[in-house]
Design a protein around this nucleic acid. Structure first.
Lengths: 121, 121
DNA sequence: GTTCTTCTCAACCGCAAGGTTGAACAAGGA
DNA sequence: TCCTTGTTCAACCTTGCGGTTGAGAAGAAC
């Protein structure tokens, strides 16, 4: 759990934390408020928030005795970039593979042909 | 770790697994081949692959005694959709907040929070 | 046949994650 | 001052994860 990417993915791997993010996208909220819908203690939610905060997904501003939690949308870009990069790469490879296959009708070299058909499944 | 989204995020929370995905985006590979760069046993890598497979990120086709691993880019969409949804929502809220703030010189009402939509994760 | 390669399964270990309860702290309000 | 509210800290427990080693299954090659 070193790099930020690991922390972010890990943070969002938990359904409760994802739901909290979903709710924080609508409005900032305090810990008690956030904890209300779930069947766990307030302390547990506080821990979840700590995880989200360390991942950079959330920030807490001190306001009186409350600690409103605010969603930081920036970090999402980090994930999106990573994902898009490899998805694009995979799709590119797929496309090139199709080209190779299309060319393979003319030539007859003993190249691997597995995985070449609509292997996605 | 019930739903697929949890499995996918969890799978990508590990640096080794992310690196494997990165390499598989370039070309399919066998387990030994994949294990080579890392300082862990082949069995450990096999376990990592199982995780990736159960997340739907990867598929293994049987070919002789080898088990080539293939990246399935589809699942990425699942994540991207989730991420984009809430990022967009957060940005939208930000924009509206600016509007409210701009309007606050004239009126004196608290911030409007009446969006009620909240999706399950 | 036997042997080598590739990969997975099973059992175990150490440690961190997510949960609990109980106590503490900080800031308003009575 | 004392009390209430909101939040976190400290211990503890149990479960799951990532790693190990050892053995075994399935084919290819000899």
């Amino acid at each position: 759990m070193d790099d930020q990417l690991s922390r972010v993915f890990s943070a969002l791997a938990d359904p409760i934390r994802r739901d909290m993010v979903a709710r924080l996208a609508v409005a900032d909220a305090g810990v008690n408020e956030l904890a209300e819908p779930y069947d766990v203690s307030v302390q547990a939610v506080s821990k979840h928030l700590k995880v989200l905060e360390e991942a950079g997904l959330v920030s807490r501003t001190k306001q009186a005795q409350r600690r409103p939690v605010h969603l930081e949308a920036e970090v999402f870009d980090l994930m999106t970039k990573w994902i898009e990069r490899y998805r694009r790469q995979a799709e590119e490879r797929y496309r090139r593979l199709d080209d190779v296959l299309a060319e393979m009708d003319t030539e007859q070299s003993p190249i691997d042909t597995r995985h070449t058909e609509r292997g996605a499944s």
